[in-house]
């Protein structure tokens, strides 16, 4: 009788040791990453969330008492009444993000299909050419576009000559320059996931399409495009989300008339400080993006092709 209970307790302690070892392994592997995320992402976000509910101090700093004023400000209310400026900025940012995603899609498809129809040995090199520019600093590349599109540049002279822009003005700053900058900067982030999807394209489906009387455009839409949807969805997310909140491109190429949400937030911390307002804007952007992601995820699930996507 005692032998039996003794055996059970030995078994129990072995189990406990095993559980401890498992917990130890878990924390040792997941711990560092978790620490990083908590300290550098979760905590700052929570602090920001807090700041968003403070009043503004004399120097733009957060101040007691707690207030809903910053949130009202995000919605466009101020002492001067409601203004559509914020709404316009958000919509403009959204449109920029969508059109950047759209343009990168249009550019990426031909590039990707050019690459995957080359000999396999050549493909990584060609892909590298697309990725390579993104290894240099975004600010540097955007400055280069300032030179290329500025008032004295050849492109601007050509545009002036064609009567597209008034004399003595450049293509930069403006919406067009901003769009070029965003598209240029984010193209690799569309090409890479699309390439990943296109490289494992099942060509027998293309043959099946041809065998079943499809050709040209209809063949592409019926047999090729559906296979690239997972990559496309990943690409849209990788491009649209950073483009939505991009700060460098709108600041350098956009000019004052086309304020984007990224610049709006930055100016609350740098130019005319208003930390609570800036924090509230940031939180809004975070929630907005998350909501967008969720909608996107639901949509892609409905498309029935979310398995391969990175979201």
């Amino acid at each position: 009788m005692s032998a039996i209970t003794g055996g059970a307790s030995i078994q129990g302690s072995a189990e406990r040791a095993e559980r401890l070892a498992r917990a130890w392994r878990l924390w040792m592997t997941a711990g560092p990453g978790l620490f990083w995320i908590v300290v550098f992402l979760l905590l700052p976000s929570l602090i920001l969330l807090g700041i968003g509910f403070f009043s503004i101090g004399n120097y733009g700093n957060p101040h007691l008492p707690l207030s809903l004023e910053p949130m009202r400000e995000v919605a466009g209310y101020s002492i001067l009444g409601w203004s559509p400026d914020n709404l316009a900025t958000i919509l403009r940012s959204l449109l920029q993000a969508i059109s950047a995603a759209g343009l990168t899609i249009l550019l990426a498809y031909p590039v990707v299909f050019f690459i995957i129809t080359r000999p396999p040995a050549l493909r990584p090199l060609l892909l590298l050419f697309v990725i390579l520019p993104s290894w240099t600093n975004q600010v540097v590349r955007t400055y280069a576009w300032m030179e290329l599109l500025g008032p004295g540049s050849t492109l601007s002279h050509l545009a002036q000559g064609a009567g597209l822009i008034p004399p003595h003005l450049g293509l930069m700053p403006g919406i067009l320059a901003m769009q070029i900058g965003l598209t240029y900067n984010y193209l690799p982030y569309m090409v890479v996931p699309l390439y990943a999807a296109a490289e494992k394209l099942d060509w027998s489906l293309v043959e099946a399409g041809r065998d079943l009387y499809a050709s040209g455009r209809r063949l592409f839409w019926s047999a090729v495009f559906p296979q690239t949807i997972p990559g496309l969805l990943s690409g849209i997310i990788l491009v649209a989300i950073p483009a939505f909140g991009d700060y460098v491109v709108p600041t350098l190429l956009g000019g004052g008339k086309s304020m984007m949400i990224g610049s709006l937030i930055a100016s609350q911390f740098l130019d005319t400080p208003n930390w609570p307002y800036g924090a509230a804007l940031t939180i809004f952007m975070l929630i907005f993006t998350c909501a967008g992601l969720i909608v996107f995820r639901v949509m892609s699930k409905r498309l029935g092709s979310s398995e391969g996507s990175m979201i």
């Binding site: 099942d202 027998s204 489906l205 043959e207 099946a208 399409g209 041809r210 065998d211 079943l212 009387y213 499809a214 050709s215 063949l219 019926s222 047999a223 559906p226 949807i229 029935g304 092709s305």
Partner: peptide, 27 residues
Amino acid sequence: PHKRPVNTVFQSYALFPHLSVAENIGF
């Protein structure tokens, strides 16, 4: 191929994964 009076049954079947059985057959 799309103008030949032949149809192929592929070794891998090559069914369109995004279409239903009926849609595949009616393609």
